[in-house]
Amino acid sequence: MNLSTIIGKTSKFGIYIAFVLLCVVLAILSPYFFTVKNIINVLNQVSIIGIIAIGATIVLISGGLDLSPGAVVAVAGVMAAHFGHPGEYPLIVPVLVALVTGLVFGMANGVLTAYGKIPPFIVTLGTMTIGRGLALLACDGMQVIDLSDEYISLANSEFLGIPILIVLFALMFAVFQFILTKMRFGRHIYAVGGNETASHVSGLNVNRIKVIVYMLAGALAGFGGLLLSSRTVVGSPIAGQGYELDAIAAAVIGGTSTTGGMGKLTGTIIGALMIQVISNGLDMINVPSYWQQIVKGSIIILAVYIDMRSRNKGNN
């Protein structure tokens, strides 16, 4: 086995190796990094963006792009909070409101891109902007406060000693991992993203598949919005700023192709963790937050560059 085959073999795990290395370096620099408390903290913080990133991943694999989840987080959070005041409605109502909000946005995204043939960048840029406006409109620009205890405990309780957010994140991962790897619909997502024409000619209902994918991503974003409003104890119209980009970054760092057809949820999880660990670690070694953004951006580019290089080598 010579060097190039070793590199070829390991490049598949490049992102995992980079993540481990990053953790090792941070552990050396800060003794606090590798404590159970900090690890739980990191996982807790990554959960909501992680759930949204699952949606971003399936949309990217299907050959689409979704810029709206950040705005959906805000709309869903505000709408759900309206139904979350103490003593008004049972908890299921705000939960459903958040999910339905997400589904409606997803459906609009899906229908306009699939049947309207408008590029997803444009469609979701539009729905993102509309969403931000709707969020402000729905609460008249004021934060929705005074939430019930059950509502607040949605994201702030523990399950078997593990913070509930982490449990929910793991659950969403498991469900979508199953869809992508074990279900016929998962195969359809990869096929449509890999080659729309070939999928159509092979008898797949390409448009319907796209709409469902956007709706699932929308529901995940709506769910993320619900959890965020619960965690922060407020329905805020400016919540979730930039979440869409973090979600896409997590997917892309994790090896999901921006041109569709390729990607893995495990990669996305590592990608999301990587982003979180970088800001957490840099905090810990007292790097100012301005620098953190610069580091984060550079890592996104670097990760994709390395990933593309290893892929090209494999293809020749």
Partner: peptide, 20 residues
């Protein structure tokens, strides 16, 4: 362009129309 999904494996392509 029309026959294959180039980004997928041989196996995945073979069963694309008969997944059901």
């Amino acid at each position: 362009e029309v026959g294959l999904v180039l980004k997928m494996s041989v196996g995945r392509n073979l069963t694309l129309t008969t997944l059901k």
